[in-house]
Every structure is written in structure tokens, then in C-alpha cells.
Design a protein around this nucleic acid. Structure first.
Lengths: 207, 207
DNA sequence: CTTGCTTGGATAGTCTCACTGTCTAATAAT
DNA sequence: ATTATTAGACAGTGAGACTATCCAAGCAAG
């Protein structure tokens, strides 16, 4: 198919497709002449993936490019796979003081998360620094509950990593890491609504 | 204190503080003369809050402004409070087709999240559309596990909302909604590391 | 009291990001 | 033969978050 058909099918303007081609985030079509190239289903799917990554998942073009690169040329070690997925969506880090750092380490130790990379520990510390900046304190029990909930989630996810094919495992890990994040956040908010509605009902019943 | 001292204390350049003042996201100091104003501890704390919101929490300046506005002039109804917190950090939405919409509704119903707002349902649908765009399918059990985990989290959070003071409740809900998100995501990644390390150990042991 | 630094306020400039528009020469469609 | 489309190059746009420059009015030190 030609670029206009690709634009039609994917719902993305031709100019934007050309931009993705220039950025190297979309593979080029098969050249049929000096002014024509042939695009196929893989291009449609790639564009859909790009839109998903830079949309709901919140990645930048360059982060999406890195991630897609890892998809196509997966790191040889499984361990590097997680790292690639995690570094694909870099969190904005704020300043972290020592007390916050210590708090993060405390949470990590209580959760039994040994052998964790500095990167994710720093991300947690930075998030805690945000809470601290707002004078927002949470009880240790709450952190432990968060840790337990995320352990449940992560255990299931890791357990479900396909073992038959490396390519399938790569896709599962890279995409699952990034694309599930908005799902979880949306669900938390839905659960908030539900929980607060129930509390309302309880309070109304008391009167 | 003068603006240069405020800059020193908060670690933010004077020019940026002036920018925050212009944007109305930082309240102005007490004027002591035509060319001088007095800033205090509230300004230091506000700047820290702003940095936390636009940093790790990923809010834009205008979203942060809205949220801070709600903090200072809380909506009268508790129900509106959650809405204010949720709309303060607007998710980027992608295109959602009917099947995805139906999938979202299915998940919501199975989780027992009735009375949910369209906004959050759309956010979930949009996140699911991202998965679908990447041909990433999750089993219903996985979604249900996510839902259960988030219900646990949200129930605890809502239960801990302070009931003694309205102001305290407002701060808890608004800030907790937004600032805890990066905490949860960082924890999920830490738990991934741990889970994958354990699987490695198991596989190594099998050999 | 003068010399120089600081401030508030206004305005304009910078940098990044993710596009979007324009142009050209070569081709494809009719 | 005429009209439409395309690849590729390059310049322009608009939003967002600052950053820099000016100016007149203080304030501070010698």
C-alpha cells in the first residue's frame, strides 16, 4: 500500500508518518521506485504501537524508539530485558535527601526486595521525596500494604512470562512493563471511587 | 526573607520563582516597599510542593495550579474532592473502539466497581486500547488480580482519610491521589526485579 | 550622600518536543 | 498529456517550562 493508504488505515496524517520515518521509529517501506514505497501490515501495527507508547504510556519519541529497538534486537540476557524496559520510561527525578533515601531502603528491606538496582531504588526515593515535600506522611503499614500489593502483581506478571519463545518473552516484558502502568493507575482511581461511594453509603446509613 | 534567600533555600533559581509568581501558582510575598517583598516558610513549602507535583508526579504547571487551588478552596462535597484530584492529572487518551470499551466495562463489572465516573472508565479503556494496539493480551484472571490489588490499596487509602478536619481530608485525598502514583509504579518495578531474580535462582537450581 | 547591588514587574528570548507545511523532482494514474 | 501522488529535505509552528534582559525604585556600605 502507499503512504496515503497507510495514513488512512492508521488514522495518522501523512506528515506525521514521514516524521516517524525520519526519526527512525518506523521502518521504511519497500522501495518500488524513486518516488514510491510499499507499506504493509507491519507498518500499520508499528504505528499503532507508537501511538500507544507515546499516548497512554507517556513515553517520549526517543524512549519509544529505544524500546522498539530492544524489541527488534533483544538483549541476550533476560536480566537486561527488565533493565531495558525500565530504562525505556525514565521517571523524572527530584532531589532526594539522605533521610528519604534511608526510608526507601527501609521499605525495600521490609518488602524483601533484595538485589534491586539503584535505578529503581532511586525512583522510589524520588517518589517518597515528593510525598515529603508535601508533608505527606504515610504509615509504615501503608507502605507495606503497597509493597504486598505490588509483589502480588509482579509475581503474577513474571510467572506469566512466556518461556517457549525468546521473542514472545521480550515482547511480554518490554510492553507489559510500560503499557500496564496506565491500566493499574486507572484501576486505582476506579477503586477509589468505589471505596468512597461505599463510605458515603455507610455514613448515610448511620444517620 | 528576600527572594534571593528563598531561591537559596528552595534550590530554585530566582527567575523560576518569579515565573511561578507570574503564573499564580506561588502566592506573592508581603510587600515591604515598592521593590521588596517578604517571603516566609509557606513559600518554601509551596515551592517544594510545586516541584514534587511537576517532577515525579508528572503534572503540568496548569494542572498543579488547579490542584493547589482546590487545596486552598476545597470543593464543598467530598465526592467532588476525588473528582478534583482525578482531573488534576489528566491522562492522555488514545482512540478507543467499541470492543475495548466493552472490555473495560467487563473488568469494571467483575471488580464490582459500580457508580464509577465516565472519566476513569475512559482512562481504563484508553489504557486497554494501548495494550490492544500492541497485540498484548492479558487473561481475565490477570485483570481480576490487578483489580483486587488496586481494591486493597484503595480501600486502605480511603479508610485512612482523616475525618477530624476537612482541610486534612482535602490534603490527604488530593495529594495522595497524585503523589502516591509514582510510589506504586516504582514499587512494581522493584517487585519485578525481585520476582525475576527468584525465577532465575529457581531455574539455576533446576540445572 | 553617592556608589553599587538587589528587587519587583514587565517583556522578550530560549530550548525541547512533537509535529506540520512547503518545495522539488520523479513518478503513477487516467 | 495532464493531473495527482510520492520521497525526501528542510523550514516553520505551538505548547510548555523556563531564562534573560531591562528598568525604575529601593537598600546598604563607606
Amino acid at each position: 500500500m502507499r503512504i496515503s493508504a497507510l495514513a488512512e488505515l492508521s488514522g495518522v496524517p501523512v506528515a506525521t508518518i514521514k516524521f516517524y520515518l525520519r526519526e527512525g521509529i518506523l521502518h521504511s517501506g519497500a522501495r518500488t521506485s524513486a518516488t514510491q514505497a510499499d507499506y504493509d501490515e507491519t507498518h500499520v501495527r508499528r504505528i499503532a504501537l507508537i501511538r500507544a507508547l507515546i499516548g497512554p504510556a507517556g513515553l517520549s519519541i526517543s524512549a519509544a524508539k529505544t524500546l522498539i529497538g530492544s524489541l527488534e534486537a533483544p538483549p541476550p540476557e533476560f536480566h537486561d530485558l527488565l533493565g531495558a524496559a525500565h530504562s525505556a520510561s525514565p521517571r523524572v527525578m527530584g532531589d532526594v535527601d539522605e533521610a528519604t533515601e534511608a526510608e526507601a531502603i527501609g521499605i525495600i528491606e521490609r518488602a524483601g526486595w533484595t538485589n534491586c538496582s539503584g535505578e529503581n531504588r532511586d525512583a522510589l526515593a524520588s517518589a517518597l521525596a515528593g510525598l515529603r515535600a508535601a508533608d505527606f506522611t504515610l504509615k509504615d503499614e501503608t507502605f507495606d500494604l503497597y509493597a504486598a500489593a505490588m509483589t502480588t502483581v509482579a509475581d503474577d506478571e513474571v510467572r506469566r512470562i512466556p518461556t517457549d519463545s525468546l521473542q514472545a518473552a521480550v515482547e511480554y516484558v518490554l510492553l507489559g512493563t510500560v503499557l500496564v502502568e496506565p491500566v493499574l493507575l486507572a484501576m486505582r482511581r476506579l477503586a477509589h471511587e468505589r471505596a468512597s461511594a461505599r463510605i458515603f453509603a455507610d455514613r448515610a446509613a448511620e444517620e
